[in-house]
Amino acid sequence: MDEHIFHIEGLTHQFADGTFALKGLSLTIQQGKKIALLGNNGAGKSTLFLHLNGLLQPTAGKIRFKGKIMKYDRKALLSLRKQVGIVFQDPDSQLFSANVQQDISFGPMNLGLDRNAVQDKVNWAMAETEVTELRDRPTHFLSLGQKKRVAIAGVLAMEPDVWLLDEPTAGLDPYFSRQIMNLLDSIHHPDKTIILSTHDVNLAYQWADEVVVMNDGKLIYQGDPVSVFHDEDILLQAHLEKPWVFEMFQALLQSRNLAERDLFPRTKDELLQNLETEKIY
């Protein structure tokens, strides 16, 4: 079995006004990875997501999903969207039913499940995202954070193989940002692939197995979440800052004239452990 769930070859997308959002992008996504997609505004991250879910068709190039070239007929797209769930940055683009429970029910109902199975999935998804108490609330009365959690619950109820999340923590307070990231960690296992677009380099550095960086519709980095922040050229191109844990550890090494380490701490706890065990202070 091919371990790459997506093969993207020469993907180009030109909008009707002549703007190129993607420019010959080639990328492989390995199954089971937690991937952070980074890049400045206009880099093409959201456009890439819309292609991976079949909402946009390429101007040129092709996408293979699970080894097969992506097709755009109704049957093929229905199958794709059962397996690839997308959570938009703006939840108002995603929520359209009268109340929370109905909105979360929409996806499972389209899977052809019986009413009891749908209700079981909806109840489970609401509990996991802490929106059970909102089940009868009209979606347009929800706060931004509540809307984001309901949008995630709607995808969770579908149990897709691939998750695409566009800025899932943007606009949320620290508590619910942590809750959403904890939920994604609980969802993730070797058969589930999560691709998360974010401007939060601290989140990407701490959470991701792999980082993908885009600039001007092109891929400029794909690799581990530490090496990218050693590359000043990539950081400059993509308008990225270094995560504070990385920057602090690097500064401590330089201030003590110590050699660069192969293993950089990626969380606050790991940084504190390094300070204690290595006596870097």
Rank of each mutant, 00 (worst) to 15 (best):
P160Q: 08
P160T: 06
E247C: 03
D92R: 02
G223L: 05
T12R: 13
L38W: 10
L11Q: 04
I234W: 06
Y221P: 02
I195V: 05
L25N: 08
R64P: 03
L50E: 07
S105N: 05
M70L: 15
I234Q: 12
D103I: 00
N110Y: 04
R135S: 08
T59I: 05
Q222T: 13
A60Y: 04
I234A: 05
P243W: 01
L184V: 00
V131C: 11
V100C: 07
D103A: 01
G154V: 08
K62S: 14
Q89H: 01
T59C: 00
S93N: 14
V201H: 12
I86K: 02
D114W: 12
N110H: 11
R266N: 02
G154A: 15
A98K: 11
S197P: 02
R115P: 00
K45L: 10
L95I: 10
E130G: 02
I35R: 09
L236F: 13
P190Q: 12
A36K: 14
V84T: 08
A204D: 00
L22D: 02
L258T: 02
L77C: 04
L50S: 04
Q119R: 14
F20K: 15
T19F: 15
E133L: 10
L78P: 01
Y72A: 11
T198W: 00
H189E: 07
R115G: 03
S143D: 09
Q146W: 02
D73F: 10
G171R: 07
A251M: 07
Q31L: 10
T12I: 04
G107S: 12
E276Q: 13
P190L: 08
D73H: 13
K45Q: 08
D216E: 14
P265E: 00
Q14Y: 03
L11Y: 06
Q101S: 08
A36M: 09
G10E: 15
S105L: 02
Q206W: 10
N182A: 08
L164C: 01
E247I: 01
G107Y: 08
A204C: 02
E3A: 14
L196A: 06
Q101P: 00
T277H: 13
R266C: 01
T129D: 01
D136K: 13
R81V: 10
K147I: 03
I280M: 09
E276R: 10
L95C: 04
A153S: 07
Y72L: 09
L78Q: 14
N53S: 14
